[in-house]
Design a protein around this nucleic acid. Structure first.
Lengths: 168, 168
DNA sequence: TCCCTCAGTTCGGTAAGTGAACTCAGATGG
DNA sequence: CCATCTGAGTTCACTTACCGAACTGAGGGA
C-alpha cells in the first residue's frame, strides 16, 4: 500500500504537504531558488539518488511548481526553473528555515541568512491585513466554505472551533 | 538503507524538515493546535495507522515540539500538548495552508480560514525588520556564520551567492 | 459479568528510497 | 577518428518506512 495520499482531506495543510512535503522536495526547491538548477548539480549538492531526483523533478513539473528548460541549442542540457507557484513557496521555506535557526540551532550559527531591501531579515509570519506577527495566541481558526466532515476534520467538525491556542 | 538523514547538512531547511517534514507530522501538529489531542481522536480524525502515530508522537516529544500529559487521575489517559517550539511552528503551517489555498484551490473553497484580532487574516511571510511581505524578488540569501562546504551547500559554497530570485 | 473506551503493541505485506552500475548523445581533444 | 568526458537520466537489487488489521491490557459502567 502506498503512503496515504492526502487528496481527500478537507485541509489545505494536507494538500500543500502532498505536493511539497515529500522527502527531498523542500531541499530541491531551496536549491533551485539558490541557483543550483541542473540535474547533476542537484545530485552533487544534495547527495540525493538520481532515480529519486528524476521522480521529484517530474512530479514538481506536473504540479506546476517548476518547469524544465533547455539551455543549450544542441544537446539535451536542461535546467529547472521555479514557476510562480514555486516562487510563492520560497518565503514559506524561508520562514521554516528561520524556525530551524531558532529551535534547532546549528553549531557555528545559521548557515544561511536573509536580507531584504538592504537590511537583515528574519522571515516571519504576519497577518495580511494588519501586518502584525501571527502567533497561536492571536490566530483564530474558523471553518471556511470548503469545510466538510471528512478526513482531517472528522473530529474538528463535530465540535465548536474554540480558540485552543493559548492553553495552560 | 534508511531515508537519508539530513543532520549533516549545513541548511536550516534540512534540519526543520528533519523534525517536522515526515509524513503525517504537519497534520498531527495541526490537529494538536485545533484541539484534537488524544491518541484515539488523532487516529479517528486523520486515519493514520496506530503504529505510525505512536512513532511520530514519541519523536515529537523527543524533539521538544510537544509534551505528553495525563488528564485523568486514575487510568492511563493522555493528551498531547504543544510546547513553545511547536506553538512557534503553527504560523508557518498556517502560511503553508494559505499557499495551498492559493495554488491548489480545493473544490468548494478553503476548508479552514483564519482570523486575527477580529479581522480576516491570510498568514503571509514578512520581514521582521520592516514588516513588508517577503518575495523571491526582494529576498536576498547571504551566507551565515555556520556556512560550510558540505552537503546542502557543496555547490552553493563554490560560487557567489548572487540574487537568483528574479530570473526571466 | 460482560462490554466499552483509551492507549498503545505486534505482525505480515507493499511501497518508497538507496547506492551503484549502466545507457546514450553530444562535445572535447590529441 | 577514436577515446574520453560530461550531462541527464534509467535500471536494478536491496533495505527501510508505512500500511491495515488484529491483539493486549488497564479502567470504568450497566
Amino acid at each position: 500500500m502506498p503512503r496515504t495520499d492526502y487528496s481527500d482531506f478537507a485541509c489545505s495543510v494536507a494538500r500543500s504537504v502532498e505536493v511539497m512535503g515529500q522527502w527531498w522536495t523542500p531541499l530541491i526547491l531551496r536549491d533551485l531558488y539558490l541557483g543550483v538548477d541542473t540535474f547533476d548539480e542537484l545530485v552533487t549538492d544534495l547527495g540525493v539518488s538520481r532515480s529519486l531526483l528524476t521522480q521529484r523533478l517530474t512530479g514538481l513539473v506536473e504540479d506546476g511548481l517548476i518547469r524544465r528548460e533547455a539551455y543549450s541549442e544542441r544537446g539535451d542540457r536542461y535546467r529547472y526553473r521555479l514557476e510562480p507557484a514555486g516562487h510563492d513557496l520560497i518565503p514559506v521555506l524561508a520562514a521554516l528555515s528561520a524556525w530551524g535557526d531558532r529551535w534547532c540551532t546549528p553549531q557555528g550559527g545559521p548557515p544561511l541568512l536573509f536580507e531584504h531591501d538592504g537590511h537583515e531579515c528574519v522571515p516571519t509570519v504576519a497577518c495580511s491585513t494588519c501586518a502584525h506577527p501571527v502567533t497561536t495566541d492571536t490566530l483564530v481558526p474558523v471553518p471556511g466554505p470548503g469545510a466538510r466532515a471528512v478526513r482531517g476534520t472528522a473530529v474538528v467538525a463535530s465540535r465548536p472551533l474554540s480558540h485552543p491556542g493559548a492553553g495552560p
